[in-house]
């Protein structure tokens, strides 16, 4: 029963996050929304591990969540790096693009 609750909450978080990525205009907020959507998927997956109880919960969804977290962290890092780079480049005038620092 509680697995169903987790699954529903996961799906709702996923939907909210997707909406945020599309609708939010600040870039940082888009990245946060992506992380919320990702957490929603992970929660849903963990809830799926409850389908099999005997002799232990299904390990496959948990393996997927672990891998998914690694992917989400690297993607977030790359997005933040690009946001910083974009800010740095657009603060300076155009010809500054190739003169280093």
């Amino acid at each position: 029963m509680s697995a169903l609750l987790y699954a529903v909450v996961g799906a709702v978080l996923f939907a909210l996050g997707l909406y945020g990525v599309v609708a939010a205009s600040p870039l940082l907020r888009k990245v946060l929304a992506f992380n919320i959507a990702g957490s929603g998927v992970f929660l849903f997956l963990v809830a799926m591990a409850d389908r099999v109880r005997v002799p232990f919960p299904d390990p496959v969804p948990q393996a997927m969540v672990l891998t998914g977290i690694v992917v989400a962290v690297s993607a977030t890092a790359l997005a933040l790096l690009l946001i910083c780079l974009l800010r740095e480049l657009s603060d300076r005038p155009r010809e500054a693009a190739d003169d280093g620092h």
Partner: peptide
């Protein structure tokens, strides 16, 4: 990146 991430999350 954002499009790609959205796509892979879906």
């Amino acid at each position: 990146l954002l499009v790609s991430l959205l796509g892979s999350l879906a």
